[in-house]
């Protein structure tokens, strides 16, 4: 009797979670398991063990796409996050005009990746009359091919991605910086710490929470890079496959209407992407935890002294 009443009370709560639980089942658990199973099957649904993976890892295009994805992730995150932090610190150190800079740096957020790539495709036109080449010609720099040259395509793409995405990270860091108690800085100033030292021993340790978050979200987004490469060269990943990413490989093998597609390959690549993202998340967690314990300890020690 009493048990029944409690169960009834529980049920009235459970039903409110029904939508989300069914959603999780249908659009998370089922697709995840289905992807794992599909990666072990051929096109006819027969179990073929790890053959899809063997074929995939022997495939030059796939290997190149993994290399490109990782290279662009390291380059992108490696520049974006530190620069965002430095710019946010600079913004935090000035008196007036913070708001204006904030508005400007966040401006690219209203533009979609497609729009931004369109804009830079014209600015980076490979002929001498592209704006970039024209401006650089004043310094005697020879015209470059930018996105059309296999040697500079990935770097040019990263420049575009940072131009679009850095504002978001600046805002995140800036919000974190504003939460640091001014007393810390005043105390340090009284003790005669230079601005650089204050930045090193107060600002950086106090931003570790934001760093973890920004690193995590930026890394995951970078590993899933798709729209910008698709906007530059469609399914091809050209020039010379340098813009082929893992996500492009998955898309191509799942939905291509122009090229040969193989759903087993797409599934195997999806599992690979999932594993890479999981590994990156765990690595991020591990590194930031180690580093932050270390940083805050040294930060505290300095402050006490």
């Amino acid at each position: 009797m009493k048990k029944g009443a409690r169960l009834k009370r529980y049920m009235s709560w459970y039903r409110l979670l029904l939508i989300s639980l069914v959603g999780t089942l249908v659009f998370n658990f089922y697709p995840l398991i289905e992807t794992f199973i599909a990666s072990l099957q051929n096109m006819n649904g027969n179990f073929i063990g790890l053959t899809n993976y063997k074929i995939m890892f022997a495939n030059g295009e796939f290997r190149q796409s993994v290399v490109n994805t990782l290279y662009m992730a390291v380059l992108g995150v490696g520049f974006n996050v530190p620069f965002a932090f430095i710019i946010a610190s600079l913004m935090n150190s000035i008196g007036r005009g913070k708001g204006i800079y904030r508005v400007i740096f966040l401006l690219p957020m209203v533009m979609s990746m497609i729009t931004v790539v369109t804009l830079f495709k014209y600015l980076m036109m490979p002929s001498p009359d592209g704006a970039f080449n024209y401006i650089l010609s004043f310094w005697g720099v020879q015209p470059r091919l930018w996105l059309n040259d296999p040697g500079t395509a990935r770097e040019s793409l990263i420049f575009i991605a940072i131009w679009k995405g850095i504002g978001y990270n600046i805002i995140l860091f800036f919000a974190g910086l504003q939460g640091i108690s001014p007393e810390l800085y005043e105390a340090a100033e009284v003790d005669g710490a230079t601005p650089l030292k204050r930045w090193r021993y107060i600002t950086i340790p106090c931003s570790k929470g934001t760093f973890t978050f920004v690193l995590m979200t930026s890394t995951i987004a970078a590993l899933k890079r798709f729209t910008e490469v698709y906007a530059v060269s469609g399914e091809t990943g050209n020039p010379a496959g340098k813009l082929g990413t893992l996500m492009l490989y998955i898309y191509k093998n799942s939905f291509s209407t122009l090229n040969y597609k193989d759903e087993g390959q797409a599934a195997a690549a999806s599992v690979t992407l999932f594993v890479i993202i999981l590994a990156a998340t765990l690595l991020n967690n591990y590194l930031t935890k180690e580093k932050s314990a270390d940083e805050s300890a040294s930060g505290r020690r300095r402050r006490v002294r």
């Binding site: 999780t24 995951i220 798709f226 799942s254 759903e263 797409a266 992407l273």
Partner: peptide, 20 residues
């Protein structure tokens, strides 16, 4: 269970989600 959605990127489940 619900937060597990955040751990699996949407993009790695495209095909089965589309078939649903």
């Amino acid at each position: 269970v619900i937060l597990s959605n955040m751990m699996v990127p949407f993009e790695s489940k495209l095909l089965p989600i589309y078939s649903v």
